[in-house]
Amino acid sequence: MNNGKPLLSVRGLTTEFTTPEGKIARALEDVSFDVMPGQTIGLVGESGSGKTTTLMSLMRLLPAGGRITAGKVMFNDTNLLALSEREMRDYRWKSMAIVFQGAMNALNPVMKVGDQIHEAIMLHNLMDEDAAEKRVKDLLEMVGIARTRRDQYPHQYSGGMRQRAMIAMALACAPDLLFADEPTTALDVMIQAQVLQLLREIQKSLGLAIVLVTHDLGVVAEVCDSVVVMYGGKVAEYGTADHIYNEAQHPYTQKLLEAFPDVSKPGDTLASIPGTPPRLTNLPPGCRFEPRCHLKIEKCSQVNPPLLEVSPKHYVSCILREGAEADL
């Protein structure tokens, strides 16, 4: 792991939602991790684990009813949570851009793709019209779309090309940090491989840091340097990709890996995790994974486990593991 200063440092991020019935749902609790410059970090989890909420909290784009109740998000030396909405707007897209899930819906169907990228550039007054126009075409080329297709509409693009166009749009203002929310989920395996390859290439050439949110452990293994495994709104395990995939300590991570079918080992049995992820409005009092855990002891249902550092830079939130309480 890079020992330099992190580009983005998230500490104790806690986000809550108020449901229309007035219930409080704790969507995130005490989420901490670092993003190093030029590094790819994966946020992995199932639906409801809080991975997308983490992204939205970092961008401060939470939907109505959601609010950040505690924590710090340091981008370089600025606490993003302390900024006014106006100042925050300056950070969005210029410093940190996002590729949304479902490229099908994130593009305006009645606007030319090139115009949409052009708009993203002009909104931030970075350059004049002509320079912006040149940049649009450069960006398209960078993501592997012919310059001649600038004037086409989204429906003339295939699914993979739309995702590429979304990436081009995110790169429009040359951000330092790219958030990618399930960028390959709706795509075929081959297109998925192409998009991942593209992300790797632009990361190498632009030195971007990428936060990749996905449910797919395979995708994470292919591209990420470090991984945050989330469960029920908390960090279950956080470490380098090698820690997570080869020395997993949290029972959830272990089971999840066993549940992932591996094409290189046909005929293997798949582990399954009984039960379903917890409802955020009705969280168990102790460890969130306790009801589904195969290793649970009595204490698990009473104590909300702290994040422990089991080996350098490898953090696990499970009372069965040994380590000093994490200094995050």
């Binding site: 449901t19 639906s47 989920t185 709706a186 409802r279 409005t281």
Partner: peptide, 17 residues
């Protein structure tokens, strides 16, 4: 229904096309 009640939407949009 509210999106935080029960399963938070679906995980894969899958190939609708």
């Amino acid at each position: 229904a509210h999106h935080l009640e029960g399963e938070a939407g679906m995980i894969a949009i899958a190939d609708v096309e």
